[in-house]
């Protein structure tokens, strides 16, 4: 039943992340990639929202590293995955919804 939702826009620029979170089920997952990865760490204005999420949250670590954010602490609710981990997530879910 579960859907892997992929978000690639920073919530500081586009509302995609919040729009996604308002429409998914508890058992679904969200993977933050590209510019969305900037809110995977503590100290941002979205930390509270993402810490209170019932869904499993993932961030693509190469995107985090590319933005120089690996020196920050990941949110407690966030799991970092590498590219093979990304592939594994896709196979573990029944469908993928890439939010453009």
């Amino acid at each position: 039943m579960a859907t892997l939702n992929i978000v690639n826009k920073s919530p500081f620029e586009k509302r995609t992340l919040e729009q996604c979170l308002s429409r998914i089920a508890e058992g679904d997952s969200v993977l933050l990639i590209e510019d969305a990865s900037v809110v995977a760490v503590t100290g941002t204005a979205y930390a509270e929202l993402l810490s209170g999420c019932a869904q499993k949250l993932y961030v693509l670590s190469p995107d985090l590293a590319a933005r120089g954010l690996t020196d920050k602490e990941l949110l407690g609710t966030m799991t970092a995955v590498d590219y093979p981990g990304f592939v594994e997530l896709v196979t573990e879910h029944e469908r993928v919804h890439s939010w453009l």
């Binding site: 039943m1 429409r23 469908r95 993928v96 919804h97 890439s98």
Partner: peptide
């Protein structure tokens, strides 16, 4: 809004635009 995921759950493929 709360029932959108039920619709999504019935699908094989999601294409977002």
């Amino acid at each position: 809004r709360a029932s959108v995921h039920e619709l999504v759950d019935q699908q094989d493929v999601i294409l977002s635009f």
